[in-house]
Structure formats: structure tokens, C-alpha cells
């Protein structure tokens, strides 16, 4: 099963390589990984998406917790949570299809963030399935290149990851 794991870490040099190194050394799979400061100077938040049976996910969580600069680990898939990913797609858009591209963009509530006489860049946000669906429709029109951020996620409700 696919799991979204949120990891709160000390914002210090080398943390990312500890996490990435752990996955490489133990042969755990990573579908996506994002990292950025978590709102204060001291902590960063890593969101990891991994695939594996229950035993493997249990080991992944335990091994992450064992890394010294890791403050807290939560498997968000265990509860209600919100997932988001951002994608930028550059599509060819010659005269005949410009309207079609804009219509697709509209369906997915995405925005055009750059335009040339024969292309658009579209910004789409949503969970992974929404991004996939959008991409399916855009592909026949000619996708030049794209980039996705990987999932970020938070649990629903009024509680944070660590109780204060």
C-alpha cells in the first residue's frame, strides 16, 4: 500500500542525506520526497511517499525515528488527511487548440502562469490523481515538459503533529 509519511526534523546540515541514505542503504522505496522549513528556523518538514507492505512501512517509520535529528514521524495514511501536489506543465498551444488547453485548465481549476504565441505554462494543484487526470487530457495536445513537487500533506483536524 502507498503511505504518506510526515517527518519533522531538526533544520541542520545533512539531515536530508541521512534520510535519503537510510532509504538507499535499506532498500526502501521512495516515490516522492519533499523538504522545506516548517515555519520556524529550527525545524524542517519532510513528506515522503513510499510503497510497501505493513512490515516494511513499520520498519521505515522505526528507522526514521532512530535517526538522531528526527523529532517526530507520522504515517498520515492512518487517518484523515489532506494531500496536495503542485505541477507546472508546458503545453504546445497553436491557434486551433489554444481554447481547448484553456478549457482543460479551467476544469482542473488551474492557472496559466506563462504564455507564448504557441505555448502555455499551466500550474495545477491537487492530489496526485487530479494531477494525473489533468496530464492525461493535456498529453494529446503536446506536453513539452513538466515538473511536479511531490506530495505534501497534513492531517485533518485541530491538532498539530507534536502536542505542545
Amino acid at each position: 500500500m502507498r503511505h504518506v509519511i510526515s517527518v519533522l526534523v531538526e533544520n541542520e546540515a545533512g539531515v536530508l542525506s541521512r534520510v535519503a541514505g537510510l532509504f538507499a542503504a535499506r532498500g526502501f522505496n521512495i516515490e516522492s520526497l519533499t523538504v522545506a522549513p516548517a515555519g520556524d528556523e529550527q525545524t524542517s518538514r519532510i513528506t515522503l511517499v513510499s510503497e510497501g507492505d505493513d512490515e516494511i512501512i513499520e520498519q521505515i517509520i522505526k528507522q526514521l525515528n532512530k535517526l538522531i535529528p528526527v523529532i517526530h514521524v507520522v504515517d498520515l495514511t492512518e487517518g484523515a488527511h489532506v494531500e496536495r501536489e503542485l505541477m507546472l506543465v508546458k503545453v504546445t498551444a497553436e491557434k486551433e487548440v489554444r481554447a481547448e488547453v484553456l478549457r482543460i485548465a479551467d476544469i482542473f481549476r488551474s492557472r496559466v502562469v506563462d504564455a507564448t504565441p504557441n505555448s502555455f505554462m499551466i500550474e495545477v494543484t491537487g492530489d496526485a490523481t487530479k494531477l494525473d487526470a489533468c496530464l492525461e487530457l493535456l498529453k494529446p495536445l503536446g506536453v513539452i515538459e513538466l515538473v511536479r513537487t511531490g506530495q505534501v500533506a497534513l492531517s485533518r483536524g485541530n491538532r498539530g503533529m507534536i502536542k505542545n
Binding site: 512490515e55 513499520e58 520498519q59 522505526k62 528507522q63 525515528n65 532512530k66
Partner: peptide
């Protein structure tokens, strides 16, 4: 003392 040792090889 190390949770990673538990249920790693043998359930």
C-alpha cells in the same frame, strides 16, 4: 531498547 530490532526478522 531499539524498536527497529523488534519484528524486523521474526514477527
Amino acid at each position: 531498547i531499539d524498536p527497529t530490532s523488534i519484528s524486523k526478522n521474526v514477527k
